[in-house]
Design a protein around this nucleic acid. Sequence first.
DNA 1: TTACTATTCAATTAATCGCTTGAATAATAG
DNA 2: CTATTATTCAAGCGATTAATTGAATAGTAA
Lengths: 221, 221
Amino acid sequence: MNPNRRFKDEIYDQFSRIGKAVSSPKRLELLDILCQGERTVENLANETSLTIANTSQHLQVLKNSRLVEQEKKGLYVVYRPAPMVCEFFLSMRKVAENRIAEIEQIKNRFLEGKKGMESIDRDALIKRIQKEEVTILDVRPPEEFRAGHIKGAVSVPLKELGLMLTKLPKNKEIVAYCRGPYCVLSVEAVQLLNEKGYHAVRLEEGVQDWRAMGLPVASGE
Amino acid sequence: MNPNRRFKDEIYDQFSRIGKAVSSPKRLELLDILCQGERTVENLANETSLTIANTSQHLQVLKNSRLVEQEKKGLYVVYRPAPMVCEFFLSMRKVAENRIAEIEQIKNRFLEGKKGMESIDRDALIKRIQKEEVTILDVRPPEEFRAGHIKGAVSVPLKELGLMLTKLPKNKEIVAYCRGPYCVLSVEAVQLLNEKGYHAVRLEEGVQDWRAMGLPVASGE
DNA sequence: TTACTATTCAATTAATCGCTTGAATAATAG
DNA sequence: CTATTATTCAAGCGATTAATTGAATAGTAA
């Protein structure tokens, strides 16, 4: 075969390694979670309802295409996204949201089931922050809050929301967020809060989106 | 199954449609070409050394994942990339280049075979444009030049380069470019020019990269 | 109408992929 | 040392995919 053709084929073969890595829904889910912070295999398996062996296998596909890195910490193996990968994931999500009409439909159908659920986006939240007082709630697990959160947000993991209710102000509006537009933690949080008489709304964006917009993100406690 | 899990699965299934589309080397090659401008099926089949039927099949995969759009023009069907797709492709290429070491190796091995081949990047070219006079040559087929080219470049398709040699200035440096870092048209052009006594170098970036940097791009003749 | 061209469809084959299962490995604790 | 825990490996099954081939469709021209 002519050497130019060979060269091209080799190059596109390499490019396709990235594509193959993100061609499986389960691997996308794993990547999405990893972009919130590093995780062990067991941890990822629990969140995705995959078996441990299957999770490990998917993680190795991601590792072989260089989208994640792994580090052994004692008895555990911790995985984290490689640099640039989360930006790439966001860019892929953006194309999907803009081009695939089914995504909007699936989201609407899901949210219709949750009556009274109000979602706001980044712009609307920024306006409210300036105009009136709002409490921003990060309802993800505490490790994810520590790894990075919207500046000014308070960590109230969904699991502890029930216990923390009394500490929240009833007169202020509450904005809850989690991992992004397709994460349901904030959906459940807002439902619970509204049932209990608070005025809560859901922020669509996650920390990654917030950061990508150039908005302030903090980490640690 | 619990409705939250169902929702997540449906969403990631949709996201993976984009991933599946870019998981095949041949489809990536097709996308890369399409990002230079619209094409007919036959046209694409010729450039990729695929059969017509196979090309058509791949294009339909791309269409079903909404990455390309199609339009019937008389006897031909013309395909073009959907909005945002070329940006996404660039973002994927960037991850691949930065994460997959093999790509650099393949490129180096290929260019080693072409002795005396000098490549420069955008920054180096900009400096030379300011300091000394250079002639910028777009060696892609004329339709691609018309669809968009680096401002100030002259269209000299590789196929006609042999005939146009006399019209090129021997004392000025010549910078040839084509579709991007992995396109070989400019490699062949620079080889020919250097053999004939010109001082020619290859620009790595293509028009897409140029545009993505915010640098001036023109279209038409 | 008929002939011709560009593209798509349909059926087939070989290769690859996702997931499961059970065994193997590696680090730690007693 | 043995037992325990987290992860990976290896084999196997069914489903999906890429590429080939030949037939079918759609638009154009005589």
